[in-house]
Nucleic acid binder design. Structure first.
Lengths: 343, 343
DNA sequence: GTGAAAGCGCTAACAG
DNA sequence: CTGTTAGCGCTTTCAC
């Protein structure tokens, strides 16, 4: 019942373990006949080389550690899917850690990854999305990054100067707001996002910039941060609708809040997009299946994941790497936006 | 820059590596003073014990391998989330493999897991959902299961007699169909699901049983398998609506097809649930956010994941385990179902 | 309590 | 081409 090892194979083939190792890795020429014999024996015994032993001596595991805040949030499975596709093609395997948004879990997982000797780390969510992250937390990540290839995905850490790949959310939001303006909207609100998160700030900044550029007034009572959930969308749309002066369009921090906003608006008897236009951000899979289909900004999550792995691989291979790889989002126009009714 | 090892620690503390190992694992008493000294040194050097070396000698990794067919399908992240929660509490870590529905990838990952010496395997999707799985594929899994703890989650392999945990989909479907019948529906269709998949067959069987029990006729032209996608729902609802005699309610194989069916019905000018009632299966997160909110059967995905880990752990610890652990689904009544209009 | 030493299974010089 | 041997870093008897 004991696992067969290179020694067993070697003995049976009457060769040394070195030779067995050679056919296993193709690291040096081996006579065709002995190679064939060894392979036959390995096959017969269904030999499974012990990856632990191999990694221990090679000092590399072929494992990439992935930290993300919530696998249950459909954006992340898509990114992860891209990560896996890219990784599989290059023989990498993944160690996925879900921090459930807790910063101390990030620290914990970072350590576990180091113990497991992963070859590199992809860091998403949590502290790297904070606008003003605690110095100690930044420090910690920097120390790890000093010892092991690490890239921040869709986030940043002030003054840490780490390698990162991210969607250009500023540009993405401009796409969304300009779309609304081009449709003729002049009364545009913004919903969702915790205000201490970088995403929220960036998106709001882009939103304000656009309105200003277009010479439109910014009504602070229409700028309603909250969190990133569907419920946030519900709540803030409710608030918007309770005002006597209402916007005719709203830009949402992500698709979840957009969905919530849409639902509440419709439940209150409004029609989307006739009475109010709504645009989201992320283009989650179900966005196109809502009624009405959601206009949104696609982050191309899968592409983001692939790119992240490519960049990390360069880091692992000690190649030169751009400090920031920026991906351009795309506006996906569907049914939830239209020109305002002329009144 | 080199990693510090137990030897470095031992030397600095003027003790043997054995003692260092003892404080690391608490496997034997160590004098408090020397323990303190060692711990201080480890802390100072930020010592990270090499998990590979440890696993190699202990012959256990604390890793559970998880095979699933598509992390992008929101049902699986939820299951996985439950798996991780349960695992974390017991110190396990996970190796996630997405087969993207390809059977050969299942084989590949099974082998990789063996090489990585995971402590146990959780198998979801792919071949274990086939109603009639190729004998060789069954055999392969059986051989692995013979060597390593393995549990099938929401699936089965004929005559393999493997340990499994699964939702009772038969019961779940009965819940759904009976609900429709109790509402007064007599004309009920069934949409979606590939007919060679076990889920589909089980659910259809339950559907037929319910109708028969209630003395209702089964109209074969209203039983429309397809695949499990939103588009399948679109297509088959389209077909249903093109018939002159239409059902007043339809039971869908899962939430995706239900969403598709709903969307097509509404796009065609029907009202849900007024003109047609729709019930799904799974209770994905967004089900409650659709308009109308989707009535569905909850699999309690997260609970399923937790249970799977518990069972696997028992297997790993060589405890007695029930061959089948069955979870009861729950009907979640929301807005997409109502009594048929009396005409 | 603590130390010496033999593994765990594989890779990689080095020598031939 | 192939064999010998010394690691890789930790755990675990077995003595003392």
């Amino acid at each position: 019942m004991k696992q067969v090892t290179v020694y067993d194979i070697a003995k049976e083939a009457k060769v040394s373990v070195a030779t067995v190792s050679r056919v296993l890795n193709g690291t040096a020429p081996v006579r065709a006949s002995t190679r064939a014999k060894i392979e036959a024996i390995m096959h017969r015994h269904q030999f499974q080389p012990n990856a632990l032993a191999r990694s221990l001596s090679k000092k590399e595991t072929g494992i990439i550690g992935v930290i993300l805040p919530d696998i249950t949030n459909s954006f992340f499975p898509e990114v992860f899917s891209g990560i896996m596709q890219e990784g599989q093609e290059t023989g990498y395997t993944f160690f996925l850690c879900d921090t459930m948004g807790q910063y101390d879990k990030e620290s914990e997982f970072l350590n576990i990854m180091r113990e497991k000797r992963v070859d590199g780390i992809l860091f998403m969510g949590g502290r790297i999305n904070l606008n003003d992250c605690d110095e100690a937390l930044v420090q910690e990540v920097m120390e790890h990054a000093n010892k092991i290839p690490l890239v921040l995905v869709n986030g940043n850490l002030k003054n840490a100067n780490l390698t990162r790949v991210a969607t250009d959310e500023y540009a993405g939001t401009m796409l969304a707001v300009r779309h609304l303006i081009e449709l003729g909207h002049t009364r545009i609100g913004f919903i969702g996002g915790e205000s201490h998160m970088a995403t929220t700030m960036v998106k709001m900044r882009a939103y304000r910039k656009c309105l200003r550029e277009a010479g439109l007034p910014i009504r602070e009572e229409w700028v309603l941060p909250d969190d990133f959930s569907v419920d946030a969308g519900n709540r803030q749309m409710q608030r918007l609708l309770s005002q006597t002066e209402r916007p005719t369009a709203v830009c949402c921090v992500n698709d979840f809040t957009a969905i919530g906003a849409m639902k509440t608006a419709i439940d209150q008897g409004m029609r989307v997009p006739d009475d109010i236009s709504i645009v989201g951000f992320d283009d989650i899979v179900l966005a196109r299946h809502f009624i009405p289909e959601l206009t949104t900004v696609s982050q191309q999550a899968s592409e983001l994941g692939r790119t992240a792995v490519q960049v990390l691989r360069q880091l692992i291979n000690q190649e030169r790497v751009k400090k920031l790889t920026s991906l351009s989002p795309r506006l996906v126009i569907r049914q939830s936006t239209a020109s305002p009714r002329s009144e």
